[in-house]
Design a binder for these strands. Structure first.
Length: 506
RNA sequence: GGCGGCGUAGCUCAGUUGGUCAGAGCAUCCGGCUCAUAAUCGGAAGGUCGUCGGUUCAAGUCCGACCGCCGCUACCA
């Protein structure tokens, strides 16, 4: 049994879960479920990022301590994932002791390696924002002053002692590493961007603050608190026991995939492997870089009022309808455009018309022509070839972190099954061996479809499994054996039931 | 400005190393079927593969220029 470790980013708890979080998390879930079908020992990690100034401020504003504040928000994420049927094996919070231990360990290793040094950070600072700004970000005031772009107030020049990570030393090492691992970043064009970032030159980045309390103190200098990335990224190691002497983190590390958004490529694909190389830890095997789900063609933002709440959607379209849409409708790595019309189109054509209707018509014909009992498939059915191709292609696409293409391959078996029924017209024939074989083919195709689609639409997959009379759980099936043609067990009652996906009127 | 990406049927996109590469799904139209959630099946129509040059026996597929979009450009988790 091989290990498979996949992570989502940890989500910052200054806002509630939105569609973008849900998208990445559903992709991770589907990937994890696929690998469980393959028999891998899967670790699927998600969690929350809970330190930093914004949390400290938000906590003060609501009259809570930072810990109380994050304790109140973090469950909104774990609850949302539960409602979306996310099967994460772990949920890490950066305020947990295991995480703090891992951060301390990683920092200490980089410090001992000489890659973290005290230096002066200087910049223009807006007191209202409590942020430093680059010159090009600033707005020019009427008197030629430099103004903060948000508050339009003059910025002040500050100097602060910070510890810096000497990222600049890692340019060659990173390029070497990526040269030896050319397919680590998927899709390829996203990887090219990261390589471009490295080649364009790397600057050291500051990893600590003295002006902040809500964070993890540096092990060797507790006047400083860890700033952002050394804190956040380390969660991936913390969850598998890094920094815990009684655990061997290398049992599950390096991770197979970090799922990330395109906005955090620099941090994950440049900072993170450099930090790990410094600390003597193997970088992850892969990154899967996703685009954004846009809303009405624009990035979702509170100001444009186009934020979509995923939990509202599942009330309207059903959990699996929603999961299927986000997985099937956008090629992972590209931006997708979320729209209600697109959602309904996908739902009606793929789920209601193709899959749901196939299950319904098969059940009806079995009831009318086969006494309601499942029959054995034809071992030499042309659908067997189609099923083998579907499995092969779906496997290749899941392996490449392309859920939309994997589902397309899966749906090719559904379409072929509908066509196979048309070709043979069992509803016209008298009951008998020929009809039994045709319906056996359809049932067998549905059995395989249930397995192949289960990473995306697990509840539906199980429902199909049960309606065709298969015992046990779809999730206990193991690929590729379970998807080979001819294993449908005849004799069980086939149940029609309510429509799996009632059509939505448009 | 720099780096990167994109521009292929109405829409969303596939098209490894140049020679069945002009494709899929959806939408449209026509026809069949009526077991099924007015679902399904078959067929048709639809693109000078952004523009202009170049390399080649042969180019969406390589090279150059140009046009039009978009992302990143550094500590804002």
């Amino acid at each position: 049994m091989s290990q498979f470790y996949v992570t989502t980013p940890i989500y910052y708890v200054n806002a509630e879960p939105h569609l973008g979080h849900a998208y990445t998390t559903i992709v991770g879930d589907a990937l994890a479920r696929w690998h469980r079908l393959l028999g891998d020992d899967v670790t699927f990690l998600t969690g929350t990022d809970e330190h930093g100034l914004k949390i400290q401020q938000a906590a003060e504003a609501s009259g809570m301590t930072p810990q109380e504040f994050t304790d109140s928000i973090a469950p909104k994420f774990s609850d949302a994932w539960e409602r979306l049927n996310i099967t994460n094996d772990d949920f890490i919070r950066t305020t947990e002791p295991r995480h703090k231990a891992a951060v301390a360990e990683l920092l200490q290793r980089c410090y001992d390696a000489g890659d973290i040094e005290l230096d002066t950070f200087a910049g223009k600072y807006c007191v209202a924002c409590e942020e430093y700004y680059q010159d090009e970000e600033l707005v020019s005031g009427p008197n030629g002053d430099d103004l903060c772009p948000i508050h339009l107030l003059p910025v002040e020049y500050f100097e602060e002692e910070n510890y810096f990570f000497r990222l600049s030393r890692f340019e060659d090492r990173l390029l070497d590493w990526y040269a030896k691992h050319p397919t680590a970043m998927k899709p390829e064009h996203r990887g090219n961007e990261a390589i471009g970032l490295i080649k364009s030159g790397l600057r050291d980045f500051s990893i600590s603050r003295t002006s902040l309390d809500w964070g993890i103190p540096l092990p060797w200098d507790d006047k400083h608190v860890t700033y952002v990335w050394f804190d956040a990224l380390t969660n991936y190691l913390a969850a598998v026991g890094f920094g815990n002497k009684s655990q061997d983190y290398t049992e599950r590390w390096p991770a197979d995939y970090h799922l990330i958004g395109k906005d955090i490529v620099r941090q994950h694909c440049v900072y993170w492997p450099a930090m790990l190389l410094s600390a003597g830890v193997e970088p992850p095997k892969g990154w899967a870089i996703g685009g954004w789900l846009l809303s009405g063609g624009e990035k979702m933002s509170k100001t444009s009022g186009n934020v979509v709440n995923p939990l509202d959607l599942i009330d309207d379209i059903g959990l699996d309808g929603f999961r299927y849409y986000v997985l099937a409708d956008t090629a992972y790595g590209n931006d997708g455009d979320f729209s209600w019309d697109g959602l309904v189109n996908r739902y009606n054509s793929d789920l209601a018309n193709n899959l749901g209707n196939l299950a319904a018509r098969v059940a009806t014909v079995v009831a009318k022509k086969c006494d309601g009992l499942g029959t054995a498939p034809n071992p030499n059915s042309p659908l067997g070839t189609v099923a083998a191709t579907a499995l092969e292609q779906a496997a290749a696409q899941w392996d490449d972190v392309q859920p939309s293409k994997a589902l397309d391959a899966t749906w090719s078996l559904i379409r072929a099954s509908n066509a196979h029924l048309e070709t043979n017209e069992p509803w016209k024939a008298e009951p008998g061996p020929e009809v039994d074989l045709v319906m056996g083919d359809a049932l067998e195709a549905l059995r395989i479809v249930a397995i192949l689609c289960s990473p995306a639409i697990p509840d539906t997959a199980q429902a199909v499994w049960e309606r065709i009379g298969m015992p046990g759980k779809v999730v206990d099936q193991r690929l590729p054996q379970a998807a080979t043609w001819g294993q449908y067990v005849p004799g069980a009652s086939v149940i029609k039931g309510d429509a799996l996906f009632p059509r939505i009127k448009t």
